[in-house]
Design a protein around this nucleic acid. Structure first.
Lengths: 340, 340
DNA sequence: AGCATCTTCCAAAGCGCTTTGGCTGCCTAG
DNA sequence: CTAGGCAGCCAAAGCGCTTTGGAAGATGCT
């Protein structure tokens, strides 16, 4: 059933039927009702390919997804996707993932935009002065950045959590508990969020005339293995830290393993705070000692980003709207006063 | 730059240019070269929307993705996606995720197919007599099932791992080590792979005149928490199992936690085997006691499925080709002879 | 009554590609 | 020398929608 047939059926022109269906004013309410009714009865659904060709609108949200032998998709991505999906589903949007090699990212963005495959894209885990942001800005496609960049000479719309604030608060709490040697196990500093987190910790330490010692500032991708190795390195130090703040719960698993191996006890010998992106399959309460966390649901962020992307697609949102979410600091059993 | 302009430029008809570019024979090699050359020089790329409208081909692989408040996307999905992406990228295919509520799945499939949004779909984690398989078969869109169904009255193309064999082998090994009370912590039995795994364990037990005791056969979604609870339930039993086979590494985390809490030692008091889908962020070697696993890379499966989908899209693969991958049984420190 | 102004609808022209159905000119076979 | 065949090209008809530029009829106003 296509427009032609439907309009024939109704003895109306395609124009009128199209307008009736798309809510244009130059059609009487009477006809509109008739049309909508008939469309529903016959299960008419405009062919998206045709519509796309005519309008240039795709009705899809895009994500340029880095892949490759040595690229592992972040497990956080599923959570984000869940959120994005929740919104997209409710609004009949589909998601297009365009896989790309890292060094062909720009080409892929250009292709996706030139082909009008999607109406909006989101950019994830930005780096300082992220080229992708400049690129999508130039290309003129609606977009939202999940996270923030720095050192860009223009403003851009983004949604980020207050990483600096969260890690600042975590560090401050530990300091108040008497900790002086606090370690940070962070993601690679190429990502802005990691930089912000470190900044937060440093700020809290500085406020108490303390500092983040270089040997206590570790960075690595967030795997269990790296958590373990990092913790071993830290805990084998002659003057080991009494507290660790860590950027991910998966890493925290490795840290816990290391303490076990060394017969150290949390929180007696070591206080531990981790960031919790809220996974359904791994909860901070499920640690041998329930984990104190800075918590922010990445799924909720996905949902919100989809919402804002939709708003931008339809022109409801414009400009470089910045949105920063506060982060909960949830205290559980994994922290205690510093050992004397 | 579109076809019209390009053909003007070359003083050729659109027909000829189109044919030259698409490798049709009715154009001289001379002209073809000229055309291809000019196309490259001017960076001409056919508009996919137009092409799609004309041909009905989308150049995209689809996945109908269940979402909703209470639906958590499986963390395995990222791994699968990585694999799919690897292949798709190399072949300039994009992926379309169509989020759907569980009870609107059929509608969504119908929509996606009717709209010709994608040229092929894959179906994941099928259940016995899975309606989706029947549906896509009827709809006539190329598809591959990741996993298997049962009790369908027709054959269908799929890629699965030998779950039954893997769990059979794992159980047999434990039996050979003297274990008699072997527990199985499985995913919900609504999924075929879970059924197969249980079947494998039962078969191995039966071969030694043993059985899978009802109180030792647990099912739950694969979270750390469920692993913990299940293990607690098992280990609190008056006559507790001496070995557990478990369907996921994330669950295994919880099991380990439970043993710790009960001051039991792996493998002295309890042998543990888990299935490893190969996550980059959590490895069996990274357990307090390295985990014996049945191993099969879900990422590799994703890549292979993309490859087969592409083959089906272009008619290279047809029919109900079944592909079952063997599963490695990798022995590490988490198993030992049964305690006496 | 006459003119302007809405309201409501329509025919037709795109959007940019593929594909059908020729048409032309040259070569080959009879 | 001619019919037939073939290689190589083209014009035009879709694909199914949106949108432009009217046109007809109804309505309001003087």
């Amino acid at each position: 059933m296509n427009l032609k047939q439907l309009s024939h059926m109704l003895s109306l022109s395609q124009t009128t039927v199209s307008r009736a269906l798309n809510g244009y004013p130059e059609v009487s309410e009477d006809t509109r009702r008739r049309v909508i009714d008939a469309a529903k009865r016959h299960g008419y659904r405009p062919n998206p390919s045709a519509r796309r060709l005519a309008t240039g609108k795709a009705g899809m949200i895009g994500y340029v997804m880095p892949t490759g032998e040595s690229v592992d998709i972040d497990p956080h991505f599923v959570e984000f996707l869940s959120g994005l999906g929740d919104y997209a589903r409710a609004h009949e949007l589909d998601l297009v993932l365009s896989p790309t090699l890292l060094d062909e990212e720009e080409m892929t963005y250009r292709r996706v935009v030139a082909n009008k495959q999607v109406d909006a894209v989101y950019v994830s885990s930005p780096r300082p002065a992220d080229r992708r942001i400049k690129l999508v800005e130039q290309l003129g496609i609606p977009y939202i950045v999940h996270g923030r960049s720095e050192g860009l000479d223009f403003d851009y719309p983004f949604l980020d959590i207050d990483n600096e604030g969260a890690f600042h608060d975590a560090a401050r709490l530990l300091i108040q508990l008497g900790h002086r040697r606090i370690a940070l196990m962070n993601d690679e500093l190429t990502k802005t969020f990691a930089i912000h987190r470190e900044r937060g910790v440093r700020r809290a330490l500085a406020a108490s005339a303390l500092e983040l010692f270089p040997e206590l500032a570790l960075t690595a991708t967030m795997t269990e293995e790296n958590g373990y190795r990092g913790a071993r390195a830290l805990l084998d130090l002659p003057d080991r830290p009494t507290a660790i703040i860590c950027s991910s719960m998966i890493m925290a698993l490795g840290i816990v393993r290391a303490t076990r191996e060394l017969n150290l006890e949390i929180p007696r010998d070591l206080s531990l705070v981790a960031h919790d992106d809220v996974f359904h399959y791994l909860k901070p309460e499920s640690f041998p000692v329930p984990l104190t966390t800075t918590r922010s649901s990445i799924r909720a962020a996905g949902e919100r980003i989809a919402e804002r992307l939709a708003a931008r697609m339809s022109g409801l949102e414009t400009g470089a709207r910045a949105e920063v979410w506060p982060v909960d600091l949830v205290v559980r059993g994994s922290i205690a006063g510093a050992p004397v």
